[in-house]
């Protein structure tokens, strides 16, 4: 299902930002523009990071900003931003961040499939390496669209 979520409208590359907040606002605005959520979701994601800390940096250089469904989410969405220059989030282990994947979910459970597929994507080291090696926006979108996300039960 995430093949449908990452499109020309929700993937952006080589974005220049001064700090983590600008990066979060950029990706949040993409979800607003794509019709997935209201503007207040952006503030909620920023506040969440200010209040709860940098745990959303879940892997080296990779952050997954999100907020709760009640902050204006209209439909499930994801967006992906690759920064031109990495920025620190204050995470000891995984800073600085150059790839951000944004999630908005309508409730606690309906996005489980999408999230499981997203895990397959972020564990795809070949993909991450290619992303960091200048993969173009169109290539990213088509890579995701052609990838097999069947979660293997091994």
């Amino acid at each position: 299902m995430i093949q449908k979520l990452f499109t020309d409208q929700t993937v952006a590359v080589d974005i220049e930002v001064k700090n983590w907040e600008e990066a979060v606002r950029y990706g949040g605005k993409m979800l607003v523009d794509a019709g997935n959520t209201d503007r207040k979701y952006i503030d909620a994601m920023v506040k969440n990071i200010q209040k709860m800390g940098q745990y959303i940096v879940i892997a080296p250089g990779l952050a997954m900003p999100h907020a709760r469904p009640e902050y204006g989410v209209k439909k499930i969405g994801m967006s992906l931003v690759r920064l031109k220059n990495p920025v620190p989030f204050g995470n000891e282990e995984y800073d600085p961040v150059d790839i951000l994947i944004f999630i908005c979910a309508i409730d606690q459970t309906t996005h489980i499939t999408a999230l499981a597929e997203l895990m397959v994507l972020i564990e795809d080291e070949k993909f991450l390496a290619a992303m960091r090696n200048g993969m173009k926006k169109g290539e990213i979108v088509s890579y995701i669209q052609n990838k097999d996300f069947t979660v293997k039960d091994d």
Partner: peptide
């Protein structure tokens, strides 16, 4: 547990 209960903690639960 994570801040929202819908992202990171859900991934952790699956793992």
């Amino acid at each position: 547990v994570c801040g929202n209960g819908i992202g990171s903690s859900l991934m952790l639960a699956m793992k």
